[in-house]
Nucleic acid binder design. Structure first.
Lengths: 208, 208
DNA sequence: TGTGAAAGTATCATATCGTAACAATTCAAG
DNA sequence: CTTGAATTGTTACGATATGATACTTTCACA
């Protein structure tokens, strides 16, 4: 489980969940085979790129035939550890945080939001989307062996909470705050900045 | 305004809003100068990359001194068209959509969410975060010369609404639905898939 | 006036991407 | 059984981006 295929490009790794989800829906539709060309049209990734992505894992398809949906799906299930659910905590139950809580992640995913934290007494000790909300002061008490955190708190609180998460042994953080947080090098942070995404889109509209 | 500097790499263009915002906060702190090295530590981008990014726009700094924060800020304000506000519409006032409405974009940004659309009678004709919410049926009536749309609707509605937006002459779409939407080639789509972001983070945790 | 700091620029190695091409292989039709 | 069409797996190539390193130039400041 802890890798030999380290050679897989990051860009490929990012596409794997996308492939998986689409294969899943094909499977539900009852399709048994699919070609890289069909996949390409659906997920909007070049067909040669798809074939190369797949080939990092060996020969998964059959020439002149395509890929067997079920076989491919099973393969990805294992590779993406779809069976082994990763526990996630959500920090900050504002609008964005609530959106996550209502998102049904477990449907196609190997992740589960186990708990959420906030300071708002109107939210603490409630259940939102089936997830218990605790007070942020009790972070250390409840977090247990959660391995990743979604950070949807106000920017000014980001670093302080990050430090506490790190102290609790968190392995990864999905940071939605505009703040650039500092962490030890062994902790992985993915940063998604909604304002920048919008501004960047606008820049491209005007200049390209 | 409509480009001669088309040579700027996309990767650089994506970093510009980030630079801008950070310079802005430096300015508010009263700092008058900054070096590429300082910037590098704050925005987590290699200092040489920053210097190269800046140099696409000419000589903005002074050797042996650094960059004048105010000068640089003014320059970016012009380059990023910070003065000329781009109108944006938000489609789908769920949790995620509401998060956008409460986000104070105009503070550091050249974009303004002018209106929102939804089907929920409890939201239509209300103001949320100072933004008027109209019924999605009236999209064509109100949208006017809005140039970009934020799509935060259920996945199954994504393509139909996209088609209508395209018909209305929208130039860009920020797509937060899991659906991969099809658009004419002259329309720019940036796709952010929250589930995939989370799953991708988890994959990296396990395999790298 | 001298010196140190930092920009601007160039170069190199590495990674990724899209595109194209091609041989090998397989299915399916006849 | 044979043939042909389809599609993979793989390779090659050019374009783009990145991080590193290093060099020269120029400016600020002591």
């Amino acid at each position: 489980m802890y890798m030999d295929q380290n050679k897989i490009p990051k860009a490929t790794a990012k596409r794997l969940p996308l492939y998986y989800r689409f294969l899943n829906s094909l499977h539900l539709q009852g399709k048994t085979r699919v070609s890289s060309k069909e996949l390409s049209e659906s997920v909007k990734v070049d067909s040669a790129t798809i074939r190369r992505d797949f080939s990092y894992f060996g020969a998964l398809g059959k020439k002149g035939y395509g890929y067997n949906v079920e076989y491919l799906l099973n393969f990805f299930r294992k590779t993406l550890d779809q069976d082994e659910i990763t526990k996630v905590a959500l920090i900050g139950v504002g609008n964005l945080g609530t959106a996550f809580l209502h998102y049904n992640f477990t449907k196609n995913n190997n992740t589960k939001i186990e708990m959420a934290f906030d300071t708002d007494p109107g939210k603490v000790d409630h259940n939102i989307g089936g997830v218990p909300v605790y007070h942020i002061d009790d972070l250390e008490k409840y977090i247990g062996n959660v391995s990743a955190a979604i950070l949807t708190v106000p920017a000014h609180a980001a670093q302080a909470i990050t430090d506490r998460l790190v102290e609790c042994g968190i392995a990864g953080i999905l940071n939605f705050t505009p703040a650039r947080i500092a962490v030890p090098s062994n902790i992985r942070v993915h940063h998604i900045d909604l304002a920048i995404e919008l501004q960047s889109l606008v820049y491209f509209l005007k200049h390209y």
